[in-house]
Structure formats: C-alpha cells, structure tokens
Amino acid sequence: MAEGVKPRVKVPKTASAGETITIKTLISHQMESGQRKDDDGNTIPRSIINRFVVDFNGENVIDVKMEPAISTNPFFEFEATVPETGDFKFTWYDDDGSVYEETQTVTVG
C-alpha cells in the first residue's frame, strides 16, 4: 500500500554531554484517514502510520500514538537529552505491518 516511504530526520552531529537537542523528523506517507471516498463513492480504506518511537542507546525519548487526524507526511519536533555518544533510533510502525527505521549517531565531544 504505502510506496515511496522515506524517513527524514534532522539531528545535530555533535553535542556536549547532557545537552538538550531539538530533533525534527518527517516521513513521507500518504496517511489515508479512512474518511475519504474515491470517484465511485467507495470509502478508501485507512492506511496510516500508527506509532512512532524514538530511543537513544535503548532508552526511550518519546513514544507517539498516532490517529488518522495526523497530517500526510507526519512531522514531529521534540527535544532530547544526550548523556553520551550514541545512536538515536527512530521507528515508525505502519498499519500494514511495515516498520520503517532510521538511525542517527550523535558524538559527544
């Protein structure tokens, strides 16, 4: 169902220990709400990303439960603490069972 899904994340490459960083994420996805009808009047079935999770070195940063009211190409902005060098892992869960992942490394110098 969902073709061309492309996750994009914006994370600073370096940070100082304990620094607060702002992370922006966007994933291209049509987020079909299940409310629209096609030209023949048939309801287009719902197909959305229903969950978005961000972890840093295995510790949770944010866990978002998404409903059809989230716009096409879901965008999220939030703030995270970076205690040490490590990886931010972003995971999106699709209604159709697909899982999209993206990893970004932040170096504490």
Binding site: D55, E59, V64, F75, E79
Partner: peptide, 20 residues
C-alpha cells in the same frame, strides 16, 4: 489525534506536529 509519551531522555515535555 495523537498521544505523546515522554521517556527518561526527553529533555522537555514538548512536541510539535501537524494535524488534520
């Protein structure tokens, strides 16, 4: 619309998104 749960590494209880 959405539920945001904040983990131990969330620096603040803040989130921005776009909704319908």
């Amino acid at each position: 619309v959405a539920t945001f749960k904040f983990g131990p590494l969330a620096a603040s209880q803040f989130a921005a998104t776009r909704i319908r």
